[in-house]
Design a protein around this nucleic acid. Structure first.
Lengths: 209, 209
DNA sequence: TAGAAAATATGAACAATATTCATATTCAAA
DNA sequence: TTTGAATATGAATATTGTTCATATTTTCTA
């Protein structure tokens, strides 16, 4: 099994050096062009021209255009998982893990704005892929929250979705405004972590206790 | 100006009854087919066949296929705004507004799962449209938070993004699992509102005060 | 109400693009 | 070195977004 190659339906993993080289060039070109022009404005012949191959070569390694997409999504998924695991590797408490984990995600979003295109765009391309992605993410997140304790609420699955929402939308904000590392860190310390420990709103003044 | 017609670049609003009927059929067909087959698997001829018009008719009202998409997105945007405004119309406090507003959004997401396809899918179709959508939403949200007070944190823009993230991802969860109104309400009362007023995590035990 | 002008309808024709395939070349193992 | 498997190639095909010349319907005016 070649290194770095992810096995996905619709993908043919090459068996020779020549094949590996060509496939890697096609993947790199796809990623670059998708990021610049978007998935649907990028044609197969664009990708092949950029990669220096014939159109037929593309179809040796990918059954359809959508399959390159799936492959890239699988790559991002793996990269996010790895980065998150690395970022919280030395943390003891859930508090620290959230601090490092959310920060890590936001930084990743800023440096790889294409993640949103790929992952959220998958809704229109292969709905099941999108659902699987977030359900599996939520499940591990929820399990981790339960395991670590420190969470004040019993419905950890809903909490997992809330935390994913917070990460994803702060990533969006950071991407829109081009926040740098220092700004992200300030936001984490001054706003995000206080919100996670103390909440956002004062109690409803009018409600009975 | 015909009622219910939204003015968007790339759209030709019809001037006769016949025209209005045809355009409405084209819009309804587009919405239904996009929801079932996705934007890119739906061809113009599919839409026209379903609507009972010729292909040329489509191009009288819409300059391009993307323009129908923009029109639908504008429709959802308006509908979300209207529903939110209606749902928080009688609320006095920010606490109540968040309770009603988030619940309203989740219910809308469950009953209209196509919103995510359309709004998040716009990232791959017209990035600026996506950015404008969330930036303008965040701006009004942030202004409202500031105006109402009751928010414990000074960076209301980040708070707005966090709240949008919470709504959107809980909507996702509700959509995935097909939650009913009662389940949504329980989640709001037992998990979401406590999280907003008290937070999610216990303080970091290890950090210095 | 007649008739002209504007609005709308139509589908064949065109252009762009995803995908296929028969043929040629290169690679790797014996 | 030989041979079969793997890979490369680009012309050909099928699908689909878009255009356009022509026909029909609606609206306005005299």
């Amino acid at each position: 099994m070649p290194d770095k190659m992810i096995r996905v339906k619709g993908i043919n993993i090459p068996k020779t050096e020549l094949g590996k080289t060509k496939m890697e060039k096609l993947l790199a070109s796809s990623e670059e062009l998708f990021a610049n022009k978007g998935f649907y404005s990028t044609s197969i012949s664009d990708i092949c021209k950029h990669a220096g191959t014939a159109v037929g070569t593309f179809y040796i390694y990918f059954d359809t255009k959508t399959d390159v997409y799936k492959y890239l999504m699988e790559t991002y998924k793996k990269e996010i998982k790895d980065r998150l695991a690395a970022s919280i590797g030395n943390c003891q408490t859930r508090y620290e893990k959230e601090y490092e984990g959310i920060k890590c995600f936001i930084k990743y979003a800023v440096s790889t704005p294409n993640v949103y295109n790929i992952i959220w765009g998958s809704l229109s391309i292969d709905r099941q892929m999108f659902v699987d992605y977030y359900e599996s993410f939520a499940e591990s997140y929820s399990r981790a929250l339960e395991h670590d304790g420190e969470v004040t609420l019993s419905d950890t699955e809903s909490v997992a979705y809330m935390l994913m929402g917070i990460s994803n939308f702060l990533g969006l904000k950071a991407m829109f405004t081009g926040m740098n590392e220092e700004q992200i860190d300030n936001m984490m310390k001054q706003t995000v972590m206080p919100a996670l420990t103390n909440g956002i709103l004062k109690y409803d003044i009018t409600r009975e206790e």
